[in-house]
């Protein structure tokens, strides 16, 4: 039986927002993208609601919306800044030294070209394999491997190895 759109939206809005937040690195943009997609999904719900996996279909719509949104609004884009993220939800407390590394990695991921970033998110956040990513992005598996390979090369290049003793506060562990 086809679920009602309202039930679908209520159930899926949080997972979609989470996916869009990771994809866009911008909670505000994530809200805009998910809102736009759900609005369109509602208009075509007779068809979308009857497919095997409506949530997978709508998730793909979110991916496409993000990619086309970025193209449409490229001239208007504002460089991502962590204060944007923190203005929506403050970072979760983390007392380990890995926190800074993750923040730095986030900044680097945010600077990746959009398709590379989408491929990275689908591989390392959604745990999709190459064929699933290819299906989601509408490209060949070889292209997916190329996107991920280039993204990793960029992220590795910029990922400086942690120096010995990193994580120790000044004056700690030196005696």
């Amino acid at each position: 039986m086809t679920p009602s759109f309202d039930d679908f939206a209520a159930e899926q809005v949080t997972p979609l927002l989470r996916y869009a937040t990771v994809l866009t690195c911008d909670p505000h943009l994530a809200q805009d993208v998910v809102q736009e997609v759900l609005l369109r999904a509602q208009q075509k719900w007779d068809r979308i609601g009857s497919v095997d996996l409506p949530h997978a279909y709508v998730k793909r719509m979110v991916t496409n919306e993000y990619l086309s949104w970025r193209r449409r609004r490229a001239a208007k884009d504002v460089a991502l800044c962590m204060s944007t993220l923190e203005s929506v939800t403050p970072p979760v407390a983390d007392t380990t030294h890995h926190y800074d590394e993750r923040e730095a990695m986030l900044q680097r991921i945010a600077r990746l070209p959009r398709k590379q970033r989408a491929a990275v998110v689908l591989r390392y956040y959604e745990n999709y394999d190459d064929s699933e990513i290819a299906q989601m992005l509408g490209c060949a598996e070889g292209t997916v491997r190329s996107h991920i390979s280039r993204a990793l090369a960029t992220l590795r290049t910029e990922h400086l190895p942690e120096p010995a003793g990193a994580g120790l506060r000044f004056g700690e562990g030196l005696s």
């Binding site: 927002l17 909670p27 929506v88 390392y124």
Partner: peptide
């Protein structure tokens, strides 16, 4: 290490997902 760090970073970003209320209201 790089791949693990990517996973950790994306997981951390996911924790900043906005509340669904404003999106549902706008919809």
């Amino acid at each position: 290490d790089t791949e693990q760090l990517i996973k950790d970073a994306l997981g951390q970003l996911a924790e900043r997902t906005p509340h669904p209320g404003p999106t549902l209201n706008a919809l």
